[in-house]
């Protein structure tokens, strides 16, 4: 559930990376293939495609309205967004400068159009950002991550790491050491008893205790982000001891 709620900003950046890597060559190839075929097949009308963006230059975090129009097309897509209506508008918030590439496929061939949105990125402070960036490394799959990194469980009203919690933290630390591209969030959770405000603070202490263990084991603090959920997002909603124990946890997730 958390994964699907990732902001467009980040996924847009990842898509941009894929687009830059693959689609420039790809669209040239398509054009080359489509051009000689169009006169040979007489039966279709060549699609038309136009796309515009307003504004074409933004500051990071601002939004752009994309406006596209096609005719004679049976399948229309914008790379990075996916299949779209033949004509339409959409608001996007790219985190870096992006070519929005519209491809209209019809019986009469393929037509494409692009618009470039320039994102003015504030100059980042120089430092360690390169190594941990999502653009340069592969974080791997969620399944592989959760197979290797287990959640950390806590005692009653406690944020101390017991023996089991310490070994879970150590396992997570060694995974992070071996996968330098991976960044994680640690979610702090509490059982349903007690007071909601206090549990948010306690959840913060739980997640932070795990973060401190990771940092002590050599993981860069910048790779670990802590979010306390208190008792707001519970895994298990029954009023049983087993369920309470299930909820008293610090949960790892990939920070995409």
């Amino acid at each position: 559930m958390k994964r699907s709620s990732l902001s467009y900003r980040r996924s847009g950046a990842a898509v941009l990376a894929l687009m830059l890597a693959g689609s420039l060559a790809g669209c040239k190839h398509k054009k080359a293939a489509a051009a000689p075929m169009a006169p040979a097949i007489d039966s279709g009308v060549t699609p038309t495609a136009t796309i515009s963006a307003d504004p074409v230059a933004i500051d990071q975090g601002q939004s752009v309205v994309l406006n596209w129009r096609t005719t004679n097309a049976t399948a229309v897509s914008i790379e990075g967004i996916g299949a779209v209506n033949p004509s339409g508008t959409q608001t996007v918030t790219p985190s870096a400068s992006t070519n929005f590439h519209l491809v209209a496929k019809g019986d009469g061939g393929t037509m494409d159009a692009s618009v470039r949105v320039t994102v003015r990125v504030p100059v980042a402070p120089s430092g360690d950002t390169g190594a941990s960036s999502n653009l340069n490394g592969d974080m791997g799959t969620d399944a592989a991550f959760h197979a290797a990194v287990q959640d950390v469980y806590f005692g009653y009203d406690s944020y101390d790491l017991d023996g089991k919690a310490q070994s879970a933290s150590a396992a997570a630390a060694s995974f992070l050491s071996a996968h330098s591209a991976v960044r994680v969030t640690i979610g702090g959770y509490c059982d349903e008893r007690g007071s909601a405000e206090y549990n948010l603070a306690l959840g913060e202490n739980r997640a932070n205790a795990v973060k401190e263990a990771l940092v002590a084991a050599g993981v860069a603090p910048g790779r670990v982000r802590v979010v306390s959920y208190g008792k707001e997002k519970q895994f298990c909603t029954e009023a049983t001891a087993a369920c309470y124990a299930e909820n008293r946890r610090a949960q790892f997730n990939l920070d995409r």
Partner: peptide, 9 residues
């Protein structure tokens, strides 16, 4: 308010 900006609430 309670803030954990220092790493501790």
């Amino acid at each position: 308010w309670s803030s954990s900006k220092s790493g501790d609430p």
